[in-house]
């Protein structure tokens, strides 16, 4: 690596010049990130704001922007909430399994497999959800419609293809499971050993130890993990677009043939045939989605930051 070329005589200032250049490079990389994020906002706004005020037929079947994006937002939140309700118990269970319950030989492979699950591309999840999972869920949904039809969620009539918002929610749940698991697992594993041992030494069972030592410590971490999972579910496109044939409706019925669309899936499926006017509408809905996920993520970080402050002293 060092050859014997007699170049660059040794003087001391170059060290500072090199330092200045390198520090400048590093700093400008940070500034690029600031600029990129500003650009995201600016360009989306420039292209999207005209979309708020287009001829009525652009918003078909509705007639103006607010109801249009409102219904999509409803669908987005609805599908994401279904996903959360399904995913959170499983995710916390697996996280506890890895951190406190699994035999040592099982814990590491399970953690690894969960990480792999996170790596499966969303389009593959969508494909699997639409072609493999949905047909299997037809009978389940029919059963739900028959026996639990009095609950608005299962009012039916049950779809015969299984391509419902419930199926989409299940697929979303499987997709956000890894992120919630990964974060809560870290938090569970960080519970001070002393607290745990104190609980056990008082004669607590394993579950009591978890309730009294682990959960209080991890509560805010769990909240933020769930919020991050929610953020992921809100922004997910493919899984929903492939599973649902959706229309902008507002309904709580999870198992029928008419399903609410989400912002992201609506963009993906209407994008190809969009006129420039429609395109600006879609970009505007994208901006709304960005703002909404941003708010959710921001709330999550705020919760974490507050708890970090609480535990640091």
């Amino acid at each position: 690596m060092t050859t014997t070329h007699e170049t660059e005589p040794e003087v001391s200032p170059p060290s500072q010049r090199g330092d200045r250049i390198f520090a400048g490079l590093a700093k400008s990389a940070g500034l690029v990130i600031l600029a990129a994020l500003a650009a995201v906002f600016i360009f989306l706004a420039v292209e999207g704001i005209p979309g708020v005020n287009q001829p009525a037929e652009t918003y078909a079947p509705l007639s103006s922007f607010l109801p249009y994006v409102g219904r999509l937002l409803f669908g987005t939140v609805f599908a994401a909430l279904i996903a959360l309700v399904i995913a959170v118990p499983f995710a916390l269970g697996i996280a506890l399994f890895i951190s406190h319950y699994a035999p040592r030989v099982l814990a590491a492979p399970v953690a690894y497999v969960v990480d792999l699950l996170a790596a499966v591309p969303s389009v593959v999840f969508g494909l699997w959800g639409a072609r493999a999972l949905a047909p299997q869920l037809v009978s389940v949904q029919a059963w739900l419609g028959e026996h639990l039809g009095f609950i608005p969620f299962f009012a039916g009539p049950a779809s015969v293809t299984g391509k419902t918002v419930l199926t989409a929610g299940v697929v979303l749940a499987i997709m956000i499971l890894p992120i919630i698991t990964a974060i809560s697992r870290e938090i569970f594993a960080q519970t001070p050993r002393l607290h745990e041992e104190a609980a056990l030494a008082l004669g607590a069972t394993r579950w009591e130890m978890i309730r009294y030592a682990v959960f209080p410590y991890a509560r805010s971490g769990i909240v933020s993990a769930v919020m991050l999972g929610l953020g992921r579910a809100l922004g997910e496109t493919m899984a929903v677009a492939l599973v649902l044939s959706a229309s902008p409706v507002v309904t709580l019925n999870m198992i029928s043939n008419t399903n609410p669309a989400t912002i992201a899936s609506n963009i993906a499926s209407s994008f190809a045939e969009a006129t420039p006017a429609k395109l600006s509408v879609l970009i505007a809905t994208g901006l709304v989605l960005f703002a909404f996920t941003f708010a959710v993520n921001f709330a999550a970080r705020a919760v974490v930051a507050r708890s970090e402050r609480k535990f640091s002293r």
Binding site: T2, T3, T4, H5, E6, T7, E8, E10
Partner: peptide, 9 residues
């Protein structure tokens, strides 16, 4: 020496 990129035989 190396890190200061001094060249030596």
């Amino acid at each position: 020496n190396r890190l200061n990129s001094k060249r030596m035989k």
